[in-house]
Amino acid sequence: MSIQHQIDLAKKYLRYYLSAGNRHDVHSPFVFSLIEEVLNKKAARPEYAPMETLREQLLQSKDIVNVTDLGAGSLTGAGTERKISDITRHAAKPPKFGQLFYRLVQYFKPAYVLELGTSMGMSTAYMAKGRPESTIYTIEGCPNITAKAKANFASLGLTNVRQFTGNFDDVLPQVLAQVTPDFVYIDGNHRKEPTLDYFRQCAAKASEHAVFIFDDIHWTPGMEEAWKTIQDDERVTLTIDLFFIGLVFFRKDFKVKQHFTIKF
């Protein structure tokens, strides 16, 4: 990330922080409950400890992995050899977002979760731990990273994760042919057109009670354009902008399309 990109992102975040609302600015009972029962429940839980212990181990790791495909928009920079610690530091979502994913799957109780972009598996692990009854389908472009994530899942005792490796363009249709996900986390490719393509493929199979999460919706002008296109999609009835991620809902009981920007 260039210095200018960091400055631009910081300016965007400041605008978001100064303008974002909270539960008192929301007149939707659904969104109010989501804020009260999920977004604002940020206190530490013992259940988070295994993932954060793993995170510390990965950050201290001296291991190097040969990366064959991180995908466009990777946050870890160029090069084929990567330190596990660098991948974890730059590509894994911070603890508060992993913990949010944990609470979201507990709250919405999806049967099938689909994640595009496994990386070291931190977000995957939080979702898998959050609801062991759910099956997590996660796709990663790099075989060596898939292997590292598999070892991480084993260390956490996770048995409800199904891993797939390959280009999202090839693998996503195969996974969607097997399962209809009701909780989707789209990460791993931070460009406008691929993001919209993955959204359309997943939305075509989604039920009205599905929850979609998009990563880095303000990362670039292209990602902001993608986010606006998603908001405008006729199937989408509600979105919540948390700056670093965006939540998308398709519920037909929302008679009027609503978009919220909430401080998180």
Score class of each variant (00 low, 15 high):
residue 86 D to R: 01
residue 83 K to I: 07
residue 58 L to M: 14
residue 90 H to R: 10
residue 94 P to V: 11
residue 102 Y to M: 07
residue 98 G to P: 14
residue 110 P to I: 08
residue 79 G to K: 06
residue 94 P to A: 12
residue 74 S to M: 03
residue 70 L to E: 08
residue 62 K to D: 11
residue 108 F to E: 03
residue 106 Q to A: 13
residue 104 L to W: 08
residue 100 L to C: 09
residue 104 L to V: 01
residue 85 S to V: 06
residue 104 L to S: 03
residue 92 A to G: 05
residue 67 V to G: 00
residue 83 K to D: 15
residue 88 T to Q: 14
residue 70 L to N: 02
residue 96 K to L: 10
residue 85 S to H: 04
residue 90 H to M: 15
residue 96 K to Q: 14
residue 112 Y to G: 00
residue 97 F to E: 06
residue 113 V to C: 02
residue 104 L to Y: 08
residue 70 L to Y: 11
residue 68 T to C: 06
residue 102 Y to P: 12
residue 106 Q to F: 04
residue 108 F to P: 07
residue 76 T to E: 09
residue 70 L to V: 08
residue 110 P to N: 00
residue 62 K to C: 05
residue 76 T to H: 00
residue 92 A to K: 04
residue 81 E to F: 12
residue 114 L to S: 07
residue 99 Q to K: 14
residue 72 A to L: 13
residue 89 R to F: 06
residue 82 R to F: 03
residue 116 L to H: 06
residue 60 Q to V: 04
residue 85 S to W: 04
residue 103 R to V: 01
residue 69 D to V: 10
residue 104 L to E: 05
residue 57 Q to K: 07
residue 85 S to Y: 00
residue 91 A to E: 11
residue 62 K to N: 11
residue 62 K to Y: 01
residue 115 E to S: 03
residue 102 Y to A: 03
residue 98 G to V: 10
residue 101 F to P: 03
residue 97 F to N: 00
residue 112 Y to Q: 10
residue 62 K to F: 05
residue 89 R to Q: 12
residue 112 Y to V: 04
residue 99 Q to H: 13
residue 75 L to E: 14
residue 90 H to W: 11
residue 81 E to V: 13
residue 59 L to G: 00
residue 67 V to E: 08
residue 95 P to G: 05
residue 97 F to I: 06
residue 66 N to T: 15
residue 57 Q to L: 11
residue 98 G to M: 01
residue 99 Q to L: 01
residue 110 P to T: 04
residue 79 G to D: 13
residue 57 Q to S: 09
residue 94 P to I: 15
residue 75 L to K: 10
residue 91 A to Y: 03
residue 98 G to D: 02
residue 89 R to D: 14
residue 113 V to R: 04
residue 68 T to Y: 01
residue 74 S to C: 14
residue 57 Q to P: 00
residue 79 G to C: 09
residue 110 P to D: 11
residue 90 H to T: 11
residue 102 Y to F: 15
residue 99 Q to D: 04
residue 92 A to L: 10
residue 75 L to F: 03
residue 80 T to I: 13
residue 101 F to L: 15
residue 88 T to S: 12
residue 109 K to M: 10
residue 91 A to P: 04
residue 99 Q to W: 06
residue 63 D to S: 07
residue 106 Q to K: 13
residue 83 K to G: 15
residue 66 N to F: 12
residue 111 A to K: 08
residue 82 R to E: 02
residue 111 A to H: 08
residue 79 G to P: 01
residue 77 G to C: 12
residue 77 G to I: 06
residue 74 S to P: 02
residue 114 L to D: 14
residue 105 V to Y: 00
residue 84 I to A: 02
residue 91 A to W: 02
residue 114 L to G: 07
residue 57 Q to R: 13
residue 97 F to V: 05
residue 97 F to D: 01
residue 70 L to Q: 09
residue 87 I to C: 14
residue 58 L to A: 06
residue 96 K to T: 14
residue 73 G to Q: 05
residue 63 D to P: 06
residue 57 Q to Y: 00
residue 87 I to K: 04
residue 91 A to H: 05
residue 107 Y to H: 15
residue 108 F to L: 13
residue 114 L to R: 01
residue 108 F to G: 01
residue 99 Q to I: 06
residue 78 A to W: 12
residue 79 G to W: 07
residue 95 P to W: 01
residue 82 R to V: 09
residue 81 E to C: 12
residue 113 V to Q: 00
